[in-house]
């Protein structure tokens, strides 16, 4: 088996394991964040492939979708669910900005390394900072969506 498939398998195991760190009482928040993120990334992921900005030479379901099923359908939405669940609501603006910065940067570094050393993703008209900004924006959109979604039930500030 090629190294790429081992990486995909590893991503599935790691992401599934990460689901278990979500506290049970915050599971509904995690579900909404997951679903919303998945909705954005699935569509946008297909659009960027259609426009030829990126490609995923090795992927699951190669004949059905030229997007990355593993990343857009599962890994990225789960990471966003974790982002939203552990968001430091009551802390200062600097902690919040640092939180955004850390999550976005860690995911971008992971993507850049995978791009450089494997065939899982190839940048065509794409740069690391495009990834960084798009990841940042999708995190922000998901958090705003969750805030809106739970507005009626909100007690503390999200």
């Amino acid at each position: 088996m090629r190294i790429e498939y081992w990486i995909i398998l590893f991503v599935y195991i790691l992401t599934t394991a990460l689901i278990f760190i979500i506290p049970k009482r915050k599971f509904r928040l995690a579900v909404v964040a997951f679903l919303f993120k998945q909705f954005i990334t699935s569509i946008v992921g297909l659009v960027v492939v259609q426009w030829g900005l990126l490609e995923y030479p090795i992927r699951l379901f190669p004949t059905v979708s030229r997007g990355s099923f593993t990343y857009e359908f599962f890994a990225f939405p789960v990471s966003c669910a974790i982002f939203t669940v552990f968001y430091p609501n009551q802390r200062s603006i600097w902690v919040k900005l640092g939180y955004y910065f850390t999550f976005t940067t860690v995911l971008t570094i992971g993507e850049v390394l995978i791009e450089k050393y494997t065939e899982l993703i190839k940048y065509i008209h794409w740069e690391w900072y495009t990834s960084w900004f798009t990841i940042l924006i999708t995190f922000w959109m998901t958090r705003e969506f969750c805030r809106w979604f739970f507005k009626k039930e909100e007690i503390g500030r999200l």
Partner: peptide, 11 residues
């Protein structure tokens, strides 16, 4: 589980 999120918003 409609009752759950209330406490989830408290940090």
């Amino acid at each position: 589980n409609n009752s759950l999120p209330q406490e989830s918003w408290k940090s």
